[in-house]
Nucleic acid binder design. Structure first.
Lengths: 199, 199
DNA sequence: CGCGACGTTGATTTGCCTCAACGATTGTGG
DNA sequence: CCACAATCGTTGAGGCAAATCAACGTCGCG
């Protein structure tokens, strides 16, 4: 039995789905039943390295980061995911393997979650969702590839500027240290870049 | 009407599909009908920047590279794709948009190609292929993410060494200039790294 | 209040690039 | 089949982008 609150959150899910394919009320209803809302407080883990990523997350409000620790303990941020975007570790979620990544909340964050089993159930009930999630994975791939190319073909300053464009919706909510870690540069150097640009 | 030669090539396609899901003879037959073989000579373009990528390519033999040109004319290689692996520009293929990428052949290369329309037809005839291609896209995403993290968390020397491991099947067929471009370092510096390691 | 995260600035070091020159190899047209 | 061009790999000298280490001020929070 779902609460009214859940119903409220799932409302924010449909616009995403319908940007790919229109849904019937029945399809919306199925989705609403199979997603569960959850609140993560700032700094709380959504996924820890070594655990299996059992949830596919849709961010209703707030912001998550995904990162990997290297052998020296430095963190490397692979993703910032804020409102109306999706996040999971595909390898762990799909293959039920222990994850190499961590996910935590940079702000208090409300997500809608679906387990892999429930996602398969959703596919079975309404094959249309296969198209939708295939399109979702594709767009994740495309943006990752864009980021890789951007990184390879420019210096830190240009990468920072194009980050500001691509992440204009959340850039001012992110601490500089986090942005530096995402860009793969030191916080000190990012600080110098900013000053240089504002002169 | 398909030739015996085509039949021969498509044989190499089934093992890939069946590593995800077992196929019936009918499903194999449908796939064989909808894929077309094509030979690209060394240096020949498979896709040129600005064109729409209408084919999804499965490499039967040989090796392709995908790359992007930056404003200075430097090339940045995003992929090396050899035997039994897949290559397309998803954004262009799916969205029918002009591509930002180039694909060409590093060796004489035989590919099996399917257009997006035929792929949709294949999905319609046998929905099982949706699962298979979804799994394919996922694994593309996963390996791209691994590469990004590897790149961010290590220096050029370690990146080179892990490239050799990850690409051990084709590393010795690739010119050093190409490998340098893939790693995002200059050919001169790669040369110095190699000498350093072999001392 | 006091501690820890954050941002800034300076001095120094270093990883990697650029430019240039040079052999070796491949390939190609006459 | 040879001659010449193009591509490839190597090596040296010099320069720059970015890291590192260290010190310090500010702010938010328990």
């Amino acid at each position: 039995m779902k609460t009214d609150t859940n119903q409220l959150y799932t409302e924010s899910l449909y616009p995403y789905f319908e940007s790919v394919l229109a849904l019937t009320d029945e399809e919306k209803q199925s989705a609403a039943e199979l997603f569960n809302p959850r609140l993560y407080k700032k700094k709380q883990y959504v996924l820890q390295e070594g655990a299996i990523c059992i949830q596919f997350n849709f961010v209703v409000s707030g912001c998550l980061r995904m990162y990997k620790l290297d052998e020296k303990g430095n963190i490397h941020i692979t993703q910032f995911i804020a409102e109306n975007r999706w996040l999971t570790d595909f390898e762990s979620y799909h293959g039920k393997k222990p994850s190499e990544f961590n996910i935590d909340a940079l702000e208090d964050t409300i997500v809608l979650q679906i387990t892999n089993d429930n996602l398969q159930l959703l596919y079975k009930r309404h094959p249309k969702f296969k198209q939708i999630f295939m399109s979702l994975i594709e767009s994740c791939y495309v943006s990752l590839q864009k980021r890789l190319v951007q990184n390879m073909s420019s210096n830190a300053e240009q990468n920072y500027l194009s980050f500001l464009q691509a992440y204009s919706h959340i850039a001012d909510r992110l601490p500089q240290t986090q942005i530096a870690s995402f860009l793969g540069i030191s916080p000190e150097f990012l600080s110098r870049l900013k000053n240089k640009n504002s002169e």
